[in-house]
């Protein structure tokens, strides 16, 4: 990719970031909601851990932090409720994106990067700050952990984006793409480790779920944050995320080619 292409994707990301700035009140409302559920989930974990001490290697403090980090990542990774591409296909506005000399996948990936960057700053960090004030969190102990976390989070966003993008693209074939998205969201909620850490899953299920792409959307970045992974484990986890990111992006590109070969856009 040459410099002018990179510049284009940067400009796209920047605009999507700016765009989000227009929705201050909505973001504030979301922030309050995320923090509210962070409070409830952390409280539930504290009660559950009171008699146990540690569960699956998580202490009560780990669990509270896990709850708040997942809350902070909700809008960054955006596991559910993302219909932006679906909407343009359903309304037919997709025609202007397709009549541009850029990669349709790259166009949306860049926009999603801008969106995620916004939510890191204006949602993720404030939620973590509130968690710290209310409960006190377990923070990474070295700058290196922060670097690993940043890498893992970036990959989480890419995996999640490619997944959401694929689901949205079904709108080229069905008018019920939203239903498919909602169904998928319910599954992802559990399989990503959002509702509860995958390490707490029963033995027979755990290994398989940890290898699925969904673990890379929440569980892995959270474990990196909590320093549950180091050395080879850390490299393996990041490698798994990278593998799924590439696999999903390739799949997305194939589907884009199929979709544009038979573009059926709605309306005149």
């Amino acid at each position: 990719m040459d410099r002018t292409a990179l510049r284009l994707y940067f400009e796209l990301a920047k605009r999507q970031f700016q765009r989000q700035l227009a929705f201050r009140t909505a973001n504030l409302a979301g922030l309050v909601t995320n923090a509210f559920f962070g409070y409830i989930r952390a409280t539930v974990f504290i009660v559950a851990f009171r008699s146990q001490g540690t569960i699956a290697g998580y202490s009560a403090a780990d669990a509270v932090t896990y709850a708040w980090v997942t809350q902070a990542l909700i809008m960054v990774v955006h596991l559910w409720g993302w219909y932006e591409v679906e909407r343009t296909i359903r309304t037919g506005d997709v025609v202007s994106d397709l009549s541009k000399p850029f990669s349709y996948l790259g166009f949306w990936l860049a926009k999603d990067a801008g969106r995620a960057a916004y939510f890191v700053l204006f949602r993720g960090l404030p939620v973590l700050a509130l968690g710290q004030v209310m409960f006190g969190l377990r923070w990474p102990s070295s700058p290196l952990v922060w670097v690993a976390f940043a890498a893992s989070l970036t990959l989480a966003v890419v995996v999640s984006f490619a997944w959401r993008f694929l689901l949205n693209l079904t709108a080229f074939w069905t008018t019920d793409a939203r239903g498919i998205n909602q169904l998928a969201a319910a599954v992802v909620l559990f399989l990503s480790g959002f509702v509860m850490p995958i390490r707490l899953f029963p033995d027979w299920l755990r290994g398989a779920v940890l290898a699925l792409p969904f673990a890379g959307m929440t569980q892995i970045p959270c474990d990196v944050f909590l320093e549950r992974l180091d050395g080879a484990d850390l490299a393996g986890a990041l490698g798994l995320q990278a593998f799924w990111a590439v696999a999903f992006l390739l799949a997305a590109q194939v589907v884009v080619v199929l979709a544009t070969r038979r573009v059926v856009t709605q309306g005149g």
Binding site: T91, S96, S99, P101, F102, G268
Partner: peptide
């Protein structure tokens, strides 16, 4: 597509 759209402009009046 990419080669062609470089040289054309399109306006869909309702979009």
């Amino acid at each position: 597509r990419k080669d062609v759209v470089r040289h054309i402009g399109v306006v869909f009046g309702q979009r």
